[in-house]
């Protein structure tokens, strides 16, 4: 067909009327500048995996100065942290955690074992429709959906749980290989398709999936005969500050890492990071700082001893020509209940 060279005359009155009708409604419309979510490709097990990278909402000064992203990262260092105990009391009821939007009747819950028991009592197995694995799967979904609500106030994480055999568990960029529960258990690991390749997840174990531009994790959980529970999470965009509590999920004792974008609000050679953490017992929190140009590269790391209760942790970061944005990773000990209450990077003038 030849492209018509003008609008047919008979359509003009209708188009004009449509245009005028929308004028008041759309004249105030504004559009938004934002990061493009590019789809990238990786070769995994001989196949092409298309994935969405974890985005960093970089401050303008950093995005526009490559020197900060290169030299700043090279010269980055952090000083010994100072820990101040605020209260020895750890009480989940007093922390403003969210409840699962799917299972609000479970209340505030960080640990899947606690949630699974409640689900089991409320919806007992009947052998025909409700079977054992569904309790575990619902429990992990309950814990993760509440954590999503908390993190997503600040940015975006997406998680999913289910039976890794059928119906299967996958997210946009991660997927558990379909395998029967007894095979997974006998072999000792499940396998997950990630942008970094196929990763083995030990039974009842959790592994981070850290790629050049991707952050996520996978947990292989309890099994019945054919079924087993798998949990996946991928970070779509990192938060650069936390102003309301975000819990660390406790998946049958395993605690995944937590990633944030640590960046001062303006260009500076020194900044102070202030973090408020709740913990149900004394523990050693591992922290690592990852290169914003390649998340696989750890540029500095350390450990912080946190007492039971609520504590404030402060540490100074420095670099030249300026403190760069870095990916801050926090890894609590397994078998703990930990809540990040706030996270802020302040400029030291």
């Amino acid at each position: 067909m030849q492209i018509p060279n003008q609008v047919p005359r008979e359509l003009m009155p209708k188009l004009t009327a449509m245009y005028l009708a929308r004028l008041p409604k759309y004249s105030a419309v504004r559009y938004f500048e934002d990061l493009v979510a590019p789809v990238r490709e990786a070769s995994v097990a001989g196949r092409t995996l298309r994935y969405h990278p974890t985005q960093l909402p970089l401050a303008k000064y950093a995005a526009e100065k490559p020197k900060i992203m290169v030299d700043g990262v090279r010269n980055f260092s952090f000083a010994r942290p100072v820990v101040r105990l605020i209260t020895e009391v750890f009480d989940l009821r007093r922390i403003r955690l969210e409840v699962s939007p799917l299972f609000p009747w479970l209340g505030k819950v960080l640990a899947t074992e606690e949630a699974a028991e409640k689900v089991r009592q409320r919806v007992p197995a009947d052998g025909t429709e409700i079977v054992e694995w569904m309790h575990d799967s619902a429990a992990s979904l309950a814990v993760m959906s509440a954590r999503e609500v908390e993190y997503n106030k600040h940015s975006q994480v997406e998680a999913r749980s289910g039976d890794g055999y059928i119906p299967g568990v996958r997210l946009s960029s991660l997927a558990f290989e379909r395998i029967r529960g007894y095979e997974y258990w006998d072999r000792g690991y499940a396998r997950v398709v990630t942008p970094e390749g196929m990763l083995n997840v030990p039974r009842m174990g959790l592994i981070p999936a850290v790629g050049k531009d991707f952050l996520g994790w996978a947990f292989a959980g309890p099994k019945s005969w054919i079924q087993w529970t798998g949990v996946l999470a991928e970070l779509r965009r990192l938060a650069d500050r936390i102003t309301s509590p975000v819990g660390f999920p406790n998946l049958w004792g395993r605690t995944p890492p937590f990633w944030l974008l640590q960046q001062p609000s303006r260009e500076t050679e020194r900044a102070e990071v202030a973090v408020v953490v709740d913990s149900d017992r004394d523990q050693r929190l591992r922290v690592a700082f990852r290169d914003p140009n390649d998340y696989r590269r750890v540029i500095d790391a350390g450990e912080i001893d946190i007492p039971k209760g609520r504590s404030e942790v402060r540490y100074v970061v420095a670099s030249y020509p300026a403190v760069p944005p870095v990916v801050s990773e926090m890894q609590p000990e397994d078998n703990t209940q930990t809540v990040l209450n706030s996270f802020e990077t302040r400029v030291i003038s």
Binding site: V39, R50, H52, S137, A138, S145, S161, G162, R170
Partner: peptide, 28 residues
């Protein structure tokens, strides 16, 4: 859903989806 998500990603974009029992384990 999984195959259609992959096809949509080929166009540089994002379609998300899932299927499950909405009662237990839940669907979101």
């Amino acid at each position: 859903v999984s195959a259609r998500m992959e096809e949509y990603k080929r166009s540089g974009s994002s379609l998300l989806g899932a299927s499950d029992d909405p009662f237990v384990p839940g669907l979101k």
